[in-house]
Amino acid sequence: APSAPPPPSNTVVPPSLPPYFIKGSIIQLADGELKRVEDLKTEDFIQSAEISSELKIDSSTVERIEGSHTSPNFAVVQFSVGEHRAQVSVEVLVEYPFFVFGQGWSSCCPDRTTQLLELPCTKLSVGDVCISLTLKNLR
């Protein structure tokens, strides 16, 4: 079973761009199947979450995208998460890719994502619905 990431605070700052977003990175789905990161589909995330005993898919709608006050290389993306529309902001590098339902990888600066990671990417926009995760059976 996958080990769950730590609980969220309202703002999450990933330390750097993780290596698994580089084109060609091998990703293991919950059923054991291996896929390249650029070949992942929405169904892969949904089916993996269905198999997972800990995690389930939630939808996060992009409500606002603005430049970070700390660095021009960062952006703050505000999401409305799940049916309760909980507000979560994440501060990420502008090239950080999010997976948009039915669309694929998207970032605030897709040109930079493609340049740095070679990952095919579209522009993340307000209204896009991204894949996020939540824990199952939380009380």
Binding site: P5, P7, F21, I26, I27, L34, L40, G82, L138
Partner: peptide, 25 residues
């Protein structure tokens, strides 16, 4: 003999950058 270099394999859930907030109902 040269050992084959192992290719890192990443779990699918690591690609999602954050967990949604816990719902309390």
């Amino acid at each position: 003999n040269v050992e084959p270099r192992s290719v890192p394999v990443f779990p699918w859930h690591s690609l999602v950058p954050f967990l949604a907030p816990t719902q309390s109902d």
